[in-house]
């Protein structure tokens, strides 16, 4: 690519990517609990890294650009996996603020959520908690009796 166009494109991509990185880190600092922080940790960081990788790939030799593309693809594959693992761990260990949840679709789907967490709060899937909890637990038991396949 000709020099001036590549320079301008690289400048825009790198400064935009760095802005996304700063925004992601700021969100990581501001958001209240682990799932919200994962939101800030995965999407803006990945977009920032991809923009900076694209900017670097425009500037460098094309044989280096292939390696940069590979790094970007790897990040695109692994970031959702990490977010899913960490949010599942947060849900299972109780490291999230349940008063901020609008919907909890894992409330009767995970076998470990019937426990109490460290603060002694009883999770909604606990059979002895509330009437709604009993219904949810009954639903979970009914679905458990069917073979999964």
């Amino acid at each position: 690519m000709s020099g001036l166009v590549a320079d301008v494109a690289t400048s825009v991509l790198m400064l935009g990517g760095a802005a996304f990185c700063v925004l992601g880190a700021w969100g990581l600092l501001r958001f209240p609990d682990v799932p919200a922080r994962l939101q800030a940790a995965t999407k803006p960081q990945t977009i920032g890294l991809l923009a900076i990788l694209a900017g670097a790939a425009l500037r460098t030799d094309p044989r280096y650009a292939s390696g940069l593309v590979l790094v970007g693809l790897f990040q695109l594959v692994t970031a959702p996996v990490l977010a899913q693992r960490i949010s599942r761990a947060a849900h299972r260990t109780g490291y999230l603020r349940r008063d901020l949840l609008l919907a909890d679709e894992l409330a009767d789907g995970l076998p470990n959520t019937a426990d109490t967490d460290e603060t002694g709060d009883v999770h909604p899937a606990d059979p002895a908690a509330t009437d709604a909890g009993e219904d949810a637990a009954a639903d979970a038991d009914a679905s458990d009796e069917e073979p999964p396949h």
């Binding site: 990185c21 960081q45 990945t46 920032g48 890294l49 670097a56 940069l68 790094v71 990040q75």
Partner: peptide, 11 residues
């Protein structure tokens, strides 16, 4: 990821 970003800028 930020370390990756910085190394990319160095590249």
């Amino acid at each position: 990821v930020l370390i990756l970003t910085a190394v990319t800028v160095e590249v």
